[in-house]
Structures are given as structure tokens and as C-alpha cells.
Nucleic acid binder design. Structure first.
Lengths: 219, 219
DNA sequence: GTCTATAGCTGGATAGAC
DNA sequence: GTCTATCCAGCTATAGAC
């Protein structure tokens, strides 16, 4: 059927198999969740032979790990410059909105959530997902730390923790979406409202600012 | 070995099988995640025969649905009175801390997160998890709505959305925990800090309060 | 209601031809 | 590198003895 074995460099009938398997793994998780993943289903989506997963990666788990790693590295890199250019909470919220919409659209959040769930009792996968999430949170944390310097919020909010809470919120809401779409959307909106609150508080006038700082200190 | 078949009412060597299967299902998810769940693993944990799952519930899925339903109903009922007695954000935060600690300890959050992940592409399970989460969010939403009346935050924060965002945050962080314990704890702390921020803002003096309300209106 | 046994299937993984 | 064929483990679900 296909002209397999053709090795002229210009042909590229399909991307090389290894890559197609990685993409297929991602797509399979996105569509059916980790529960629906197997060597056979992935191979089916990738249009490749099941045995090739073991030839190229050694095991199905190892393929999932690679899919996780590759996606995170690529996507985080895609936003690095934009995140570095952010100078206030308002801009961060705007970027956050866009970033989340883009990643959701691509299915990256769903896949991350599913991998995270699958990592329960699977140390190899857990390590990979941890690394992937670490790439995201490190970037966000850096921006938050920069913005919080000199803010009345700096005594209250821990950048590292907030970065993880926001990531976890996205992940949790994405899972929620499969069970209750409208509820998840309302939750998403609330997350934005909290962002607006941070922004508003951060931009308070000197008087209100001092009152707030005093209140925070007292706790 | 065991004196099976003994039907004297006082014996109760073990709780009735149906209940042990529900508990076993819960425990299996908690320990190994949805990925590790099967009729055999559940039966093993429950100390029962695998075939009894199909006799009592018809399918493994149906057993998971029942475990989800039973746990949620029981636990939400457990907090209803306390939630109804809450009259300010400070008390809500205190209760929230305790509630979350208790539920985490019991494994209820982990199980919910795992079921949520498994609900992807499993409509029957999705419906059950949706109902379970609905019980929680309905209670939280009610308290939030009550507390927000008259607060400068009422124009900004939607109780229904916030209830879902908080639930999703807990769920997401619980998943996170399997991959990165310290990170998840930092995230949890940040969630509390946001709670404190709500509390502080809510209790602001009239002057700062007015400044804040004006800022919020402007957006 | 509970057990054993088993049918029938899907899954991970490997051997070996090409 | 890719394909076919296959082994074997584990799974759902049912039949039937007790």
C-alpha cells in the first residue's frame, strides 16, 4: 500500500514514526483519558504498528513520559519571552487569560491533568509530570515574585505557592469540565475575579494601601 | 477457615458484603488510583469474591458510582450544620481548614480527584461525580452568598463560581501531591493566603472600603 | 448470597521474517 | 525500522454448584 522503505530524503510521506507515536500518545490521552490508553489504541491513532512503541520507547509508560516532557518543554518555551515582558498584574492577567485559552484549545491542560491522575502509584510517570509542571510553575513564580516586590501583598502572598495554586486550579477545573461544563466555566471566571482583586489591591492609593498593610500585618 | 454461612444476628463477623465492597472500592482507588482498579483488586481489598461485585452491582463502574455517591452524601451531611453556623470569613476559613484536613486524611479528596479523571469519556461515572461535587459546591456556595451580602466584594465575586474554583483547587492540589508533595503544600498555603486576603478586605474600615469599592466598580 | 470455574477478550511485550 | 505472529497475564462477565 504505502511506499514504505523509500529512503529518498525529499519524500517525507509522513513524519518519522517516533514523532507520530509521541503525537498519537498525546492525542489518545486527550480524547479518551489515561484510562483509554494502551499500546494498541495509541498505535491506531498514530497509524503505526503496535510493536514499534516497544522498539522506540521500551514501554507504553516511557512513551507517555516522553510525550509529557516534549509538550511541556515546547509550550513553556513558547511563552517565556512574553512572560518576561510583563510588568504589572493587569498585563499578567491578560497574558494568563490568553495563555490558558490557547493551552486549553490545544488540549495541553486536559492531558496534563490526566497524566497527573495516572501518576498516582506510578513513580516514573509522577517524576515526568512533576518535571513538566515544574517548568510551568518556575516561569510563573518568577513573574509573580517580580510583581510582588513593593506591593502591599508581598507580606501575604508567597509567589511559589501562588504559582502552584494557580496551576492546580487550572488542572482541577479542566477535570471538572468533563463532569460539569457550566460549573467549570463559572469556576474559571471566579479565578479571574480573584486575579482582578489582586490587581485592584495592588493598585490601591497610599491611604487604603496603608490600612490594608496594617490589617495584613496584624494576622 | 471462616465460619461462613453463620446467620445468627449477633455474630457480624464482618459487615455485610455489599458494604465491604463499597469500602473496598474506595480504598482501592485511594491507594492505587483509578488505573489500579479492577473487579479483582477491589475484591482482594474487600476480602470478598470477585464475582460478588457483579452480583451486587452489575458492573465495576456501577460499584464506583455507588462508592462516589455514598461517600459524598455522608461527608457533606457531616458538615452541614457547621457550615450553616458560619457568620464571617474568618470562621469560614477556620472551618475550611479543618474540613479540608479531615477530608484529606480520610482520602476523600484523592478519590474524588481520581474519579474525576476517570470520568473523562465515561458518561455514567461523569454523572455520578458531577452529583457528588454538586453536593459540596451547593453547600459552600450557600455560605459564600450569605457572607458576601453587604461586603465590598459582592460586586466582584460570584459565590457559585468561587465555590467551584475552591473545590477545583483542592482537587487539583491533591493530584499535584502525588507528583510533588512540597509544591502542593506551598500551593495549599497560597490558597489560604487568598482566603485571608478576602477576609482582610472584607473587614476593612469604611474609608479603605470605599476606595476599594470604587476601584472595583471602575473595572 | 457466596463460591468455583471458565469463556472470551484485551493488554504488554517479544521473536523473528523482511 | 517495520511488520506478523504469538505468548501469557489480567480483565469482565456469566454459569452453575452449594
Amino acid at each position: 500500500m504505502l511506499d514504505r522503505g523509500d529512503h529518498r530524503e525529499g519524500v517525507r510521506r509522513l513524519a518519522d514514526t517516533r514523532q507520530r507515536l509521541v503525537d498519537g500518545a498525546f492525542e489518545t490521552i486527550r480524547r479518551h483519558g489515561v484510562a483509554g490508553v494502551s499500546a494498541r489504541t495509541i498505535a491506531g491513532v498514530a497509524g503505526a504498528n503496535q510493536a514499534l512503541i516497544f522498539y522506540h520507547f521500551g514501554s507504553v509508560d516511557a512513551l507517555l513520559v516522553e510525550a509529557c516532557r516534549a509538550t511541556a518543554a515546547q509550550r513553556v518555551g513558547h511563552y517565556r519571552d512574553e512572560l518576561a515582558a510583563v510588568t504589572d498584574f493587569s498585563a499578567l492577567l491578560d497574558l494568563g487569560r490568553r495563555l490558558h485559552a490557547e493551552e486549553r484549545e490545544l488540549g495541553n491542560v486536559t492531558v496534563l491533568a490526566q497524566l497527573l491522575a495516572g501518576a498516582q502509584g506510578n513513580p516514573r510517570l509522577a517524576e515526568a509530570v512533576n518535571a513538566a509542571l515544574g517548568l510551568w510553575t518556575a516561569e510563573i513564580e518568577q513573574v509573580l515574585a517580580r510583581l510582588l516586590r513593593g506591593s502591599p501583598l508581598s507580606d501575604l502572598v508567597d509567589p511559589a505557592g501562588l504559582a502552584r495554586a494557580v496551576s492546580a486550579g487550572f488542572v482541577g477545573l479542566e477535570l471538572y469540565e468533563a463532569a460539569d461544563l457550566e460549573g467549570a466555566e463559572a469556576g474559571m471566571a471566579a479565578l479571574e475575579q480573584l486575579g482582578v482583586l489582586l490587581e485592584v489591591v495592588d493598585e490601591l492609593g497610599p491611604l487604603a494601601r496603608r490600612a490594608l498593610a496594617a490589617r495584613i500585618k496584624r494576622r
